[in-house]
């Protein structure tokens, strides 16, 4: 199963809609609840990062029998130092964004804690690519 979504930078009203759609799909497939919970947290944070930090992006979700693979690609400023960005509390979010409760600098660590595999690469001035993979563990799903 394959889904593609496009995300607009700055559109906070839309933030989370991809996560909510993916959650519905995983529930329909009877994926283990704890895997759904983790996937939703990781995807939400990655989705919000495109909205908060980039100009636009795409999210490609692929659900296989044993895993979900999510690829987020954005056009944006990129991340100069990914190691530093991963630190809890590090954030370049604007004051307005922080006032809404985003920009706590906890997003990337939430992504790390809630994905089985996380790969982030970035080119400054071009954009960021985030790849999240979560496994369905003991219980493969039936995609017919």
């Amino acid at each position: 199963m394959f889904f593609e979504y496009s995300i607009e930078g700055g559109n906070f009203a839309q933030a989370g809609s991809t996560s909510s759609q993916v959650k519905k799909n995983l529930k329909q497939l009877n994926v283990d609840g704890s895997v759904i919970k983790r996937t939703v947290v990781a995807l939400y944070e990655a989705e919000v990062n495109i909205v908060a930090h980039a100009f636009r992006g795409t999210i490609i979700v692929e659900i296989m029998e044993d895993k979900i693979h999510i690829l987020l690609n954005d056009e944006g400023p990129g991340i100069p130092d990914i190691g530093k960005a991963m630190e809890i509390g590090f954030s370049t979010a604007s004051p307005e964004v922080r006032e809404m409760g985003f920009g706590a600098g906890m997003g990337l660590s939430n992504m790390k804690n809630n994905s089985d595999e996380l790969h982030i690469s970035s080119k400054v001035g071009q954009g960021t690519r985030v790849e999240i993979t979560n496994y369905f563990q003991a219980k493969p799903v039936s995609l017919q």
Binding site: G101, F102, A104, S109, N110
Partner: peptide, 9 residues
């Protein structure tokens, strides 16, 4: 909490 990521996490 007033931080969305704190609640998510």
């Amino acid at each position: 909490s007033d931080l969305l990521s704190d609640v998510m996490g």
